[in-house]
Amino acid sequence: MSDLGPLNRSALARRVEELRAEASNNIEEQHVLSRVILKQFTDDRHLLHAVSVIDRNAMILIKGPRGVGKVPNFVPQASRSAEELWGRTENLIPRVIKLCQQDRLHDDPAAVAVVRDIVALHYIRNRGLLTIHKRGYEQIRAELRRNARNMPGYEQGFRRQFRRALRDDEDHDAYFEVLARKTDSDFRSGLLFRASVERMFMRCRQWMVEKPVQLLHPEGGMFLIGDSPVISVDHLGRLGPENGVAIGNAIQILMPLTPRTLIAFGPSATGVVPAEIVAELNTFQVRAAHEYVFVHPASGLEDFVRTVRFGADVVGGELSSESL
């Protein structure tokens, strides 16, 4: 027994070993919200407005897609190959958006499949999932620690390591730390997260393969988009994985693609939604966002974002002319 028992034999652990050789081949600046989608929320100057949901007094940033929607080192190890994997879906987004704008998406089953992949991709590139990964690892580690003595070969492994029989809890603690050393190192470095986020992407794609896709357009006004754009809602109204709403447990899954197109999982159809529904869908985005919500400069939604997030007493913020 060389490490954490069952984890060593899992497909996840095998994938970690495959990725180890490329662990240092990384891209620091990683978009968690695809630039091609952010581009849809820009004006003729190719700029959008980024509204903070952390600081009510922060200036509204005026930037291009290249400068927003990023988390440095979100995948900290072997990230170049991860970016290449995400890119296979992102390269198909422009055509899908064009079909959505023409209300021709459902004429092309392959394009509908790409829409599902877009949702899966943006669901797993979520800072909330990184928090869940860390929490889950600690829970699994604690459970393995409690049950390690029941693992086949555990006491024999201790005898081989220390050349004597296992006597007490102190011996158990020492041996468990030896077994956990390699996996703990992969957890701290982010290599385990790299393998986990890839596996989750594949699982989400598989789970959604038969889900019908619905297109919604606003009767008036515009949709906005947050930096956690896939909204999974449960029957209690909770949002997102960090609130315990896994994509498989959601009663509704939503994601804006453009200011005038939003994806929903429901009966295959195209529909127009009234202003009050647009406001409700935009509210979901604001509530779920981690740092910023992005709005088209002509939308006039900046104060809406601040009101939803901070309350009705917020005064509209200044604009910063910083742009990238």
Score class of each variant (00 low, 15 high):
residue 88 R to T: 12
residue 27 I to W: 10
residue 184 D to S: 04
residue 10 S to E: 00
residue 313 D to H: 07
residue 247 I to M: 14
residue 250 A to W: 00
residue 58 A to G: 02
residue 89 T to D: 03
residue 19 L to Q: 00
residue 30 Q to E: 01
residue 157 G to H: 07
residue 221 G to D: 02
residue 269 A to E: 07
residue 68 V to E: 04
residue 110 A to G: 05
residue 63 K to Y: 04
residue 186 D to G: 01
residue 260 R to I: 09
residue 161 Q to A: 06
residue 1 M to Y: 07
residue 155 E to D: 11
residue 246 A to R: 09
residue 168 D to C: 05
residue 68 V to I: 07
residue 129 L to A: 10
residue 191 L to S: 01
residue 218 P to K: 00
residue 284 F to K: 06
residue 250 A to I: 07
residue 132 I to G: 15
residue 299 S to P: 15
residue 278 V to E: 09
residue 161 Q to Y: 10
residue 62 I to G: 14
residue 230 V to W: 02
residue 103 D to Q: 07
residue 216 L to C: 09
residue 223 F to G: 04
residue 228 S to L: 03
residue 8 N to I: 15
residue 309 R to Y: 06
residue 29 E to H: 15
residue 74 F to A: 01
residue 184 D to L: 00
residue 214 Q to W: 05
residue 124 I to S: 11
residue 36 V to G: 10
residue 171 D to L: 03
residue 19 L to K: 00
residue 135 R to M: 10
residue 143 E to Q: 15
residue 240 G to F: 08
residue 42 T to W: 05
residue 267 P to Y: 05
residue 202 M to P: 05
residue 253 I to P: 02
residue 100 C to I: 07
residue 99 L to P: 00
residue 254 L to Q: 06
residue 250 A to E: 04
residue 246 A to M: 05
residue 126 N to T: 06
residue 4 L to C: 10
residue 92 L to A: 11
residue 6 P to M: 10
residue 241 P to S: 15
residue 57 N to R: 12
residue 89 T to G: 05
residue 274 P to H: 01
residue 46 H to S: 08
residue 71 V to G: 03
residue 309 R to N: 14
residue 37 I to W: 03
residue 138 E to R: 15
residue 128 G to A: 14
